[in-house]
Structure formats: C-alpha cells, structure tokens
Simulated scan of single mutants.
Amino acid sequence: MTYHILHVDDEKEIIKLLKMYLKSEEVTHYEAANGREALAILAVQKIDLLIVDIMMPEIDGFELIRTVRKTNNLPILVISARVEASDRIFGLEIGADDYLTKPFDPHEAIARVKALLRRYHSLGVSNEARNVRLHVGSLELDTHACTAYISGRAIELTAVEFRVLKLLMEQPGRVFTKEQIYEHGWQDPLVGDNNVRVMMSKLREKIGADRIKTIRGLGYRLEGSHETT
C-alpha cells in the first residue's frame, strides 16, 4: 500500500530531509510552504498523514490543524521549534496526534510517522467483515466507521480518542490506569501524563464530562453498562 503524506513547513531543508528518509518507504510525498497551500492540496488529494510545522506565514500550523479537524480525522504529526510545554499541550488539545520538537532525529520522526500510519489505518481492519457497535447508555461506538454517537448524533473522533473510547466502552465500570490508556491509545509503552490528560479532557468535551470518572490516584473509568450489536 502506498501512503500519501503531506508535509507543511516553510523550511525547505526540513522537508527535503524527511523526504530523503522516506524514500525507501512506500510513500507519495506532497509539500506545502504554509497552511493555505496545504488546504488547497487537501481539497483535491486524499492524504493519509499530515506533518505540520507551527510557525508559518499565511495560515500557521495551529490554525491549519483546527481547520483540518473540522472535517477530517487523519493523523497529524507536529514538528516544530516551539518547545514550550504549553505549545505541545495546545497542539494536542486542538487535534494533533503527536508532537516532535526541532531539532529532531530523522529516524525518530520516521518511526513516529510509521506508528501513526500503522495505528490509524489498522483501526477498522479486524472488523471489515462485521460492523461491531458498542453501546453504553445513549453512547454508541461504530467500530467500523470509527465514529461515536450520542442519541443518534454523530461525533467525530481522532484515532487516539477512538482507541481509548473503545477500550473504555468494552469494559465500562473498570478502572484503567494512565499507563494502560496511553499504551492502548498511542500504542507505545512510554507514558505521557500530559498527553493522557489533554486527550481525556477533549474526549469528555465530546461525549459528556459525566460519562468518564476520574479515580484519584488510579485512573479513569466509563460509567454505565455495556452491550454489543
């Protein structure tokens, strides 16, 4: 399978570097120097993964992520010189799936790209023959379409949010630790407390704060009872 990756950065050398390291992969590489150019490409081309810088002219990376997330849940990797924790948290809050700071190791960047593609595009594979729907009260999760519903109203989820919500809905009432949630959502044993906190906050905004209970010192659990159709 050939993946289509769009890299948005006004530093041409950064784009050239990652393009070189991606040469051996089955990738079609698209380039944009700012958010406006990126949106023009996204309007006509199916993109499997977006790599975004933050500080760019025309439309910056944060605004680009916000705009993309209104209609698309493709994986987004931020690679930026903005290293403050507040910038990383904000990027994740508005919809980025991962955040890497400059300067960076190209091998690590490629590993993160591969991980995001693997996670995102494997979401519905095991359920291709059977469209499984999980129900907890009025909350419903279509595991084939990777979409949640509350009383029939569709809610778009990022890839990480989908995996975590699926985990919680499969065993409502069970307490999952931050470590378990991070490993399941990001498929990585490295625990990022800020990532978990930000993602759970966004998930609560989408499905209702009262549905996910924080168990102090332990983790999180989904309230309600479970059924599958």
Rank of each mutant, 00 (worst) to 15 (best):
T2H: 04
Y3M: 01
Y3K: 12
Y3F: 14
H7D: 11
V8M: 02
V8G: 00
V8K: 02
D10S: 06
E11A: 15
K12L: 12
E13K: 11
E13N: 10
L18S: 03
Y21T: 00
L22V: 07
V27T: 13
T28Y: 11
N34L: 04
G35Q: 05
G35W: 08
E37S: 09
A38P: 00
A43I: 05
V44W: 00
I47E: 09
D48L: 04
D53K: 06
M56G: 08
P57C: 12
I65C: 09
T67C: 01
R69V: 11
R69N: 00
K70H: 10
K70P: 03
I76T: 09
L77Q: 03
L77W: 10
I79G: 05
A81C: 02
A85Y: 02
S86V: 15
D87V: 02
D87C: 09
I89T: 13
F90N: 15
G91Q: 07
G91L: 12
G91P: 01
A96E: 00
D97Y: 07
Y99C: 04
E108C: 01
A109V: 14
A109D: 09
A111K: 10
V113R: 08
K114N: 15
K114D: 04
K114Y: 02
L117Y: 03
R118L: 13
R119T: 08
R119Q: 08
Y120H: 15
L123V: 13
N131K: 09
V132C: 01
S138L: 05
L139W: 03
L139F: 01
E140H: 11
L141T: 10
D142G: 11
T143S: 02
T147S: 01
Y149D: 12
I150C: 01
G152Y: 11
R153E: 15
R153L: 13
I155E: 07
E156L: 14
E156K: 11
V164C: 00
L165E: 08
M169K: 01
M169R: 07
Q171Y: 07
R174M: 12
R174A: 05
V175N: 08
F176K: 06
K178V: 00
K178R: 11
Q180M: 12
H184A: 10
G185A: 12
W186H: 11
Q187R: 15
P189C: 08
L190R: 08
G192W: 05
G192D: 14
G192N: 15
D193P: 05
N194Y: 10
N195T: 15
V198K: 09
V198D: 03
M199I: 10
M200G: 02
L203H: 13
L203S: 09
R204Q: 11
R204D: 03
I207P: 06
I207V: 12
A209L: 06
R211T: 04
K213E: 15
I215W: 04
R216F: 09
R216L: 13
G217R: 05
Y220L: 10
L222H: 09
E223C: 07
S225I: 12
